[in-house]
């Protein structure tokens, strides 16, 4: 099991620069994200944290005016290499979005959606039921929805939808989970619930979270990265960053002096 070799790197970027047309959004970003940990990316709006996140599963690329330099590796393999199958990258690097985007199909079909995209043979009834139950249990949603798996997922509450969005990644056995402000559309109670869930997944999955919420970064991550204007300013253990930030800009930001 992966967790027995904790020294591996889940994500490593080397000299990553990215341009949207003429605008440079990332400057020479070198980052090492550790396996089995939760790492938060913080920084003011427009600092490049979402851009960085979105270049790991290459979802940035659909904009034809995006250009990148440098490399991003997931468990030692370059995601942008010549013979890399983009669909395989997306399969192994799961993503959770800011606004829950459960698909307008049944709850069960949502859980199976990704799995079926990547599986040639139709799963047996037994396999299917098992996967659905296992995934929904893992995200603490099974008890609420087990009697209405056929209901349209978009009728769920936002909290339930966001959990479902995490659940549907699990049958794909992703090696990395990327989360782009996963709680910012949720109320405080739902935020706490989803945060607990993310903490629960720690260890089994390597998770990189973009967040605007300092308190969330502080209580729900192992390591913290502070970015500013497309550059990495500081990357340390979370407790160190919030107690003794090395950089003045970091200190100003986490104390709420800007952002």
């Amino acid at each position: 099991m992966a967790s027995k070799q904790p020294r591996r790197l889940a994500i490593e970027s080397k000299g990553l620069s990215l341009w949207y047309g003429d605008f440079q959004a990332l400057f020479d970003v070198d980052l090492k994200i550790r396996e089995g940990k939760i790492t938060s990316l913080i920084g003011p709006s427009g600092c490049g944290k979402s851009t960085f996140l979105r270049s790991i599963n290459r979802i940035n690329e659909r904009h034809s005016y995006v250009r990148t330099e440098g490399t991003v590796e997931v468990f030692g393999e370059d995601v942008m290499g010549e013979d890399v199958e983009l669909v395989q990258v997306r399969r192994q690097v799961g993503m959770v979005f800011q606004r829950p985007n459960a698909l307008p199909i049944s709850i069960a079909d949502n859980v199976m959606f990704g799995y079926e995209l990547h599986t040639a043979a139709k799963p047996s009834r037994f396999e299917r039921d098992n996967l659905i139950e296992e995934s929904l249990k893992r995200v603490l949603l099974w008890d609420q929805v087990k009697d209405r798996l056929g209901d349209v997922a978009t009728s769920l509450s936002l909290e339930e939808q966001q959990k479902l969005c995490i659940a549907r990644l699990l049958p794909l056995k992703p090696s990395v989970l990327l989360m782009d402000e996963p709680c910012s559309a949720l109320d405080p109670k739902a935020t706490a619930a989803v945060e607990d869930l993310i903490w629960e997944l720690r260890g089994e999955y390597s998770i990189l979270i973009v967040t605007h919420n300092m308190a969330q970064a502080r209580r729900a991550s192992d390591e913290c990265i502070f970015m500013l204007m497309g550059k990495v300013i500081e990357h340390t253990k979370t407790e160190d960053m919030f107690l003794t930030p090395e950089n003045q800009a970091t200190a100003d930001y986490i104390e709420g002096r800007y952002g």
Binding site: R90, N101, A102, I105, G114
Partner: peptide
């Protein structure tokens, strides 16, 4: 059809056509 549905599909590795046909 909201763009977020397409993003959800693409982020799980769906091709354009799979996204169009299923969602």
């Amino acid at each position: 059809v909201p763009q977020s549905f397409r993003e959800a599909c693409w982020s799980m590795g769906a091709t354009r056509w799979q996204t169009i046909w299923r969602i």
